[in-house]
Design a protein around this nucleic acid. Structure first.
Lengths: 196, 196
DNA sequence: CGAGATCGGCACGCTACGTGCCGATCGAGT
DNA sequence: ACTCGATCGGCACGTAGCGTGCCGATCTCG
């Protein structure tokens, strides 16, 4: 009666990987509501301890799950046309932010962060600052090549650009479509562009 | 033994008022965590039905409580200097967004909205759109008086201005201080101002 | 002063949290 | 090959909030 255990009980790193994937799958299917430690455990066929041994809270698990899918596609291209590069990247990350699995997981982290200022700080430094920094890098290069004016305060500009995208995708009900991105870039280039 | 009932059991509109006030007080004291229907009921000395009869959910109660304190201080002054008027208003609402009771209640609504797209739509149209609209009104007037260029797409500009403030106060850990507001207005005026 | 709405209080079943304990299972080291 | 300790799944506990139902007391309006 020893039926073949197709998957022997996984442990250690393999379990960790699997749990992150289950979290992403669950988020994609049921969204933030219904995303709980018990739900992840049930779905993975895992005791709660197996999760709590790895992450101290749902928030920590969500942050790790988010890292798993957010790290790629973060860098801007550099074709020499800063407006085109920003446009492409904004549309890409706008789509990512509003689709599974990133969208629901991001929403979940933000919801929990509203009740937990430590988590808010972690979210900020681990994701938002990183995104702003890569934007800042790209427009700083454009400033050096003369595409943007020398007087521009690019730190604030990077925050305005990223902040507007996050505002629209997380608080607004409007989509991040081409019109939105073009409107945003119109303002940015009108302020700091040198070509017009 | 009939001790004087200093406050006779309130009902109807008086109760509604009191419950909104208790919600705001509670939010100011304990923040979003610990803000629940049971907590409001306990504090007000009220059965849960008395709350559920008025609002279908915590979110609805929060929205009403927010209206109560958010309606004033919304309009921009018009001194004829658009930059100064925006600056004053941004600093004022930035402070409001990060202090009790508005800050915690706003955070609570936003947290719940992440799991509920209907609530997100309500939040958007009832508050965010309103704020954007009053900003749009003010900068449209500035465009008519010639302070801003005629080609500017002010609808997107209003969204960028407000979005940046909300991003910073709700997702970032940075304060909405004079530097931030000035940086934002530098970009806005560089893009659409006529005086430089 | 009576009728009917509204009230506070209590209880229910449900779900999730975070922790503790159990015996089974795995796999690294000898 | 076998042992031993770490890790596993399963179950249970107490706490908390949700949303609903029912009760008898209390208030308001006609």
């Amino acid at each position: 009666m020893t039926d073949t255990p197709a998957t022997p009980r996984r442990r250690g790193a393999a379990r960790t990987e699997e749990l992150l994937q289950v979290t992403l799958d669950l988020a994609a299917e049921v969204g933030y509501a219904g995303l709980s430690i018990e739900a992840v455990g049930r779905r993975a066929g895992v005791g709660k301890h197996t999760i709590y041994r790895r992450w101290p809270s749902m928030s920590a698990l969500l942050l790790d799950a988010l890292s798993r899918v957010w790290t790629s596609d973060l860098d801007y291209r550099d074709t020499g046309d800063v407006r085109a590069d920003l446009r492409e990247q904004f549309l890409r990350s706008g789509l990512a932010l509003s689709s599974p699995p990133i969208g629901p997981v991001y929403r979940a982290v933000i919801a929990e962060a509203q009740a937990d200022s430590m988590l808010r700080a972690t979210l900020h430094e681990r994701f938002l600052v990183t995104v702003e920094q890569s934007t800042l890098d790209r427009i700083t290069r454009a400033q050096r090549t003369g595409e943007l004016t020398a007087e521009a305060n690019l730190e604030f500009a990077a925050e305005v650009l990223c902040g507007t995208l996050y505002y629209r995708s997380l608080l607004s009900t409007r989509p991040i479509d081409e019109d939105a991105v073009d409107g945003l870039l119109d303002m940015f280039m009108a302020a700091y562009g040198t070509s017009n």
